[in-house]
Design a binder for these strands. Structure first.
Lengths: 111, 111
DNA sequence: CCGGTAATTCGATAATTATCGAAATATGAA
DNA sequence: TTCATATTTCGATAATTATCGAATTACCGG
């Protein structure tokens, strides 16, 4: 992963409204959510949210698909996975503390 | 982890100079690096870098310690671990794709 | 085709951030 | 104490980002 790709992804998650939108999409799962519903839930203007969703999409963290009049957004788990992997490999290569934290997270989820 | 804590950490990593400084510190390991050396390596003004390091520190991603005239910065792997864990648990709870990416990263490092 | 709904793009403005030089603070050496 | 080094804090400016309303585009049902 290029540095610029990583900074774009971090920037996408660094803004409260955008992180909130992303978390909604994660929870919505494969069904995703239409742009308007996200805007209504978060209480932001449709145009503002559209800007945010576009940024998340360019960062590779969400994808979109038109469904008749709606545009449905979904979390892109491959993109998130790539970002996690970058953090692990490029930034924290071989550092036990980080590995342990991540392992613990995986085990918690298995339980 | 609170949302504001997460956005602060992402913001800290979302800027090219700052991510570069952080990566230097990761590679430097427990010995760390003095602020001036990082500035020289990255070719930025000392005052600019100081601002960046302060932001990384407030985000919990690096720590600092005065060593005579120098101030030595170190990557804070507990902080990074907490961020990774947040991404895994809060944002991607139970999503196989992300888990697989992370598992692969750990295995690569073991090899 | 027309009216209504859903979303985006555009244009403007307000707020935040990045950058640097100059001044201030802290340390150590002569 | 005085000087030199290392870093931070301050103040200013330039650049980027967030936000919104208005205009535009796309789609569907009658």
């Amino acid at each position: 992963m290029k540095i610029a790709t990583a900074t774009d992804a971090f920037a996408a998650l660094s803004q409260e409204t955008r992180l909130a939108a992303f978390r909604l999409l994660v929870r919505a799962g494969p069904a995703g959510l239409p742009a308007g519903e996200i805007a209504r839930t978060l209480g932001t203007a449709p145009s503002t949210l559209s800007t945010h969703l576009g940024l998340l999409q360019r960062a590779g963290l969400v994808s979109s698909e038109r469904r008749s009049r709606r545009i449905v957004y979904r979390a892109d788990f491959d993109g998130v996975g790539a970002l996690m992997r970058y953090l692990m490999e490029d930034c924290c290569k071989g550092h036990k503390t980080v590995q342990a934290a991540v392992r613990a997270a995986i085990e918690d989820e298995a339980a």
